[in-house]
Nucleic acid binder design. Structure first.
Length: 442
RNA sequence: GCCGACAUAGCUUAGUUGGUGGAGCGGCGGACUGUUAAUCCGCAGGUCGCAGGUUCGAGUCCUGCUGUCGGCGCCA
């Protein structure tokens, strides 16, 4: 029952003149009483199949006529190159309907449903997400997403990083308890992880170069086009690395994603209205680095109301990145604005050795990372300074007690990168079943 | 947590100063031998989100509720 012929290959001219067996779903169907045109879809594309009553016989012809949109079928026919719109057509000899669609409940995703919401933001399309996935726009997004995941794996594996898995059930917070999802755990409380980082640091002395791609969970009631409660987090950690060393990899992996997308999906990006020159710019140029102080001065020069020591929220990021044509790193945030695991800059402990990577076009922060507080006395100071309980971080402190070394890493929002590079209007467009504060179904 | 919109057929929507809710798509029936979102003729399909209120009369005005969408804060 395996499938041997793919519509993409038919369209590429690999089967011209041959008899083929095609398996797929009815994308569109139209015609008269004597001839019927079925546009057949599979995962590789669509092709028009011509069904003539005098060739297939009355019974088959009627069954094809009754095959509504998204009915599945197997057909046999001959590939015929043509000058018409599709380039190639199938002259059909026989058809078998595999999975019919009941006319009382026709496929609900119609042209009009797609009209107003390319990204699937309408309630209706979100409720019918399981069916929306098979539309061409979503299929393309899912394929590009797969390429992005592949590019991240390749980047790290090509550089001898080890892929390493942390638990998703955790006992405590990485940062601030308010955004943790609490789950019952055999009479105790556990939480869904917000980040792989603390557990990665534990393995840092063992593996030295490690990475992961895993879901992270944040119970934020964020209602923006950049947030999900469950998102895919690409994280890395390296031993013997400084903030600068970590940034090199952040830039490296993002540029690798952009160039891989260009290489494999130029047509898809263009079909979705993405300007390829923009994506090429993100792939080809080094990413400038700007210190927090410089960003604050720039913003003040633009008349933005901001004081030193404030974190840069999205409204300020947006103003700052407005004129940026490529992603920029923002480094050296004030110590007071960042959590304890960021290492204070020995040259000026008012700052920490950290970085955010800000994407242009209003897509905001896609990477957060930096050098970790890595010595025992420093980590104890930082934990106390923030009023945290040392006991909750015993294993984290142990990492420093037994041969602490300089190290660091970053977390990259994979879905955000997918949305940015594809030019999606909303992060929901690039993940099959988006989870936000108001939706866990379907 | 805060702010702002919206809710009419399976979908996308029109609905005037308050006076018996229309259309396009989709579905069904029919016509048509090369269509491209096929076209043409016909049919079915509505507790106007829910609950109150004003009124002779509410899809329309008022109040509450629910749901959804958009934005802010927080972050990837």
């Amino acid at each position: 029952m395996t499938k041997e012929t793919w519509i993409g290959d038919v369209r590429a001219g690999k089967h011209d003149g041959s008899k083929v067996e095609l398996k797929g779903w009815v994308h569109r169907s139209r015609g008269s009483n004597k001839i019927r045109f079925v546009v057949l879809r599979d995962s590789t594309g669509t092709v028009q199949c011509v069904v003539k009553r005098d060739i297939v016989g009355d019974e088959t012809f009627e069954s094809v006529k009754d095959a509504l949109i998204e009915s599945s079928l197997i057909l046999h026919g001959t590939v015929e190159p043509t000058d018409r719109e599709h380039g190639h057509e199938i002259q059909v000899a026989s058809v078998e309907i595999v999975g019919p669609v009941n006319p009382d409940t026709p496929f609900p995703i119609t042209e009009s449903a797609m009209e107003q919401a390319d990204g699937g933001e309408t309630e209706f399309l979100l409720d019918n997400r399981h069916l929306y996935l098979r539309t061409s726009r979503m299929t393309t997004m899912l394929k590009m997403r797969s390429t992005v995941f592949g590019a991240i794996h390749s980047y790290f594996r090509d550089r001898d990083f080890t892929e390493y898995q942390a638990p998703n059930f955790v006992a405590g917070a990485v940062e601030g308890g308010s955004t943790l999802f609490e789950v019952p755990y055999f009479g105790r409380k556990a939480y869904l992880t917000q980040s792989w980082q603390l557990y990665a640091e534990a393995a840092m002395p063992a593996l030295e170069r490690l990475y992961t791609m895993a879901p992270s969970f944040r119970a934020e009631k964020s209602r923006t086009r950049r947030h999900l409660t469950e998102f895919w987090h690409a994280e890395m950690e390296i031993a013997w690395g400084s903030n600068d060393d970590v940034m090199v990899h952040g830039e490296g992996v993002v540029r690798n994603i952009a160039s891989t997308l260009l290489e494999k999906h130029s047509d898809d990006l263009e079909n979705m209205g993405r300007d390829l020159d923009l994506v090429a710019r993100y792939a080809d140029n080094p990413y400038p680095r700007m210190r927090y102080d410089e960003a604050v001065e720039t913003l003040q020069g633009m008349g933005v109301d901001i004081e030193w020591g404030q974190d840069l929220d999205y409204s300020k990021e947006k103003v700052l990145t407005e004129d940026f044509e490529i992603p920029h790193f923002l480094t050296h945030y004030p110590r007071v604005a960042k959590p304890f695991y960021h290492r204070p800059d020995p040259e000026d402990p008012k700052y920490v050795l950290c970085h955010d990577l800000l994407a242009p076009e209003g897509y905001g922060e896609i990477i957060g990372g930096g050098e970790r507080t890595w010595s025992e006395p420093e980590i104890l100071d930082r934990i106390d300074e923030e009023g945290n309980d040392r006991e909750a971080y015993e294993f984290y402190i142990d990492i420093r007690r037994y041969g602490g070394v300089p190290h660091g890493g970053f977390g990259l929002g994979v879905d955000r990168v997918c949305a940015w590079l594809s030019g999606a209007d909303h992060i929901r467009e690039v993940i099959p079943f988006p989870r936000d504060s108001r939706r866990v179904t379907p």
